[in-house]
Every structure is written in C-alpha cells, then in structure tokens.
Design a protein around this nucleic acid. Sequence first.
DNA 1: TATTGTTATACTCTATAACTATA
DNA 2: TATAGTTATAGAGTATAACAATA
Lengths: 162, 162
Amino acid sequence: MTARPDPLTVEVVDLIGTVVARYHEEYERAAAEHSLTGAQARLLRLLAMEPMPMRKLAQCLKCEPSNVTGIVDRLESRGLVERRPDPADRRVKLAVPTDEGRATADRLRTSLDFARQPLGRLTVAERTLLKQLLQRMLGVEPEVPKAPGTGREAGERRRSEG
Amino acid sequence: MTARPDPLTVEVVDLIGTVVARYHEEYERAAAEHSLTGAQARLLRLLAMEPMPMRKLAQCLKCEPSNVTGIVDRLESRGLVERRPDPADRRVKLAVPTDEGRATADRLRTSLDFARQPLGRLTVAERTLLKQLLQRMLGVEPEVPKAPGTGREAGERRRSEG
DNA sequence: TATTGTTATACTCTATAACTATA
DNA sequence: TATAGTTATAGAGTATAACAATA
C-alpha cells in the first residue's frame, strides 16, 4: 500500500499543490497579456535582472542550450532582446534586453500581482511567520542569524511519519 | 518605476517562487522515472482517484478537450488507460486506468516525496502553522470552524524566532 | 581537444477550427 | 440545435545529436 505520510503532511502538501497551480496560472496569464509564453517571460525577466550568455540562460532556465536559441530568436524578432558579441571570448553571445524589452519585463512584474493579491490577506506578522516557515522548509538560512542559537536547533525535532 | 510591494512581501513571493520551481522539478523528475511526461502523470493521477469522461479531464487539467485525446491516446497505447463507453450517453467516453495504470499512479505518488522531504524539516507545530497560513492566503476556509472565532486570531501566534 | 552557440530532428503539449456521432 | 469526442493544423517547448567557429 505504499504508506502515506500522516494526514497533516498530506494536507499541507495539497495546499502547496494549490499554491503551485495558482502561481502558474497567474504567471501564464500575465505573460499572455503581453503576448509572451511562459518560457519567454521567464527568460526576459532573467535578462532584465542581468544580461548573460546563452549558455548561462540555459542553466538558469534548467533546459538545454539549443532551446534557448529558439526562445531568444522569437524575442529578438519582436525587438525585445538583442544578441551582442562578447569582446573577451568571440564564441560567446550575450543576450541583452532592449529598452522595450526592459519596459515589457517591468510591466510583466507589475502584472504578477500574485504577489500582492493572495498575500494581502495576511497580516505583516503572518507574512513574517510564513517567510520563516518557508525558509526552514526549503533549508534556506535566515539572513540574519545574529544570535548563535537561532532558536530551533536540534532540540525539537518531531517527525511524525513512517 | 511601478512601485514594488514592501520588501517583506517580495521576499515571501520569491520564496513561493522557489517552492513552485522545486515542486515542478520534483514532479517532472518523478514522472520521467516512469517514462511519463508531466501532463501524462497528472492525467493518470486524476484517473486513479476517479475515472471520468474526456470532457471532465479537460476541465480538471484546464486545457482544451482536443489535447486530452492525444494524452489519453499515448497512455492507452502503453496499456495504462482504457476508454469505455458510457451506457447512459453514447457520446461520452469514460477514461479508466488499467490495473497497471493504477499501479503506476501509486508508484508515482510514492516517488513524489516532495511531500516528505522538505516538510520533514518542520515540526508538527510548524506544519500546522504553515497549513493555517496557506489556507488563509488561499482564502480557503479551515475545514472545522467549530468555534465562531476559528482560532487564528491573535491568540496563538507562536513564531519561533525573529 | 574542449567549449559556445547553432542547426536538424523528433516528440509532446497547446489552442483553434472543422468534423462525427450522438442527444 | 447543442454536446462529446475526434481530427487536422500550426506554433511553441523540449531533448538529442551533429556541426561551425573559437578557444
């Protein structure tokens, strides 16, 4: 019967699944509003933060470099991205957003009000709490571990599944 | 400029983005382990919970009915799913998992240890808290609102640091 | 030789529109 | 007429393999 985790964990996982689904719908919707696919939107947002070589784009997007060629092609044909030679290494092409590309990326971010909409239901205290829980869940170190023992070290482990 | 939300909200949104990315990687990886695509895995898991007509599958998957035809075709050609006529309405075809399909769906669920892995880092109390926060964020009513004030008022704040 | 980016190929997913067989 | 499912079509993303230019 492939034992399931305890009911609480299942509930939380289901909730996370719902969050994931909504996040994606929202992302695709926002991208489509600008006539972009999800992949194009993700690539454009990456470049808006920092221009980079094709190879690095592939790493960031976790896909094969050959795919990046096509996605950048489509963005370039719409005047949102440019390919520039890297003076230091003539094999490398740097993908750089045009001014219009940057503007689109900016509007895209604004459209992504998944940020504010659902989170708006939470108080500041709750958001802080959620942040801490997600950080712990993801194994991310809190940014300011001032005190040596940040609170919950090994003391209160409590796992509940088989 | 397009004013950004406050830094705390941005941080939480970024964390949620990370959760979403990991969830997807994990899902695709688990599906690939069984030589399934993500879409095929999602459809098969739906059917394992409850056989349903093609039309309803499309609604659940939030895609066009014509897509479902192809996905079911591929699963059927591998012997994981069957199409059965609906006695009540001869236009309708019910998609039903075969025994092997059910077994695959079950193994798939087990592979999805995204469930236990990251959540294992949280104590039971933390998981409960996370559940409540996500429910509030998603606007989902807690399932047993016995008492008029369901609890998450101001009384039981419990943060573990900060 | 190794690396960067591209091309060629094949498969899947996706939406749209037109078709069929039922209702 | 309306509905369920399919087919046909086209575009996009994906991985693999082979290739050119450069290192």
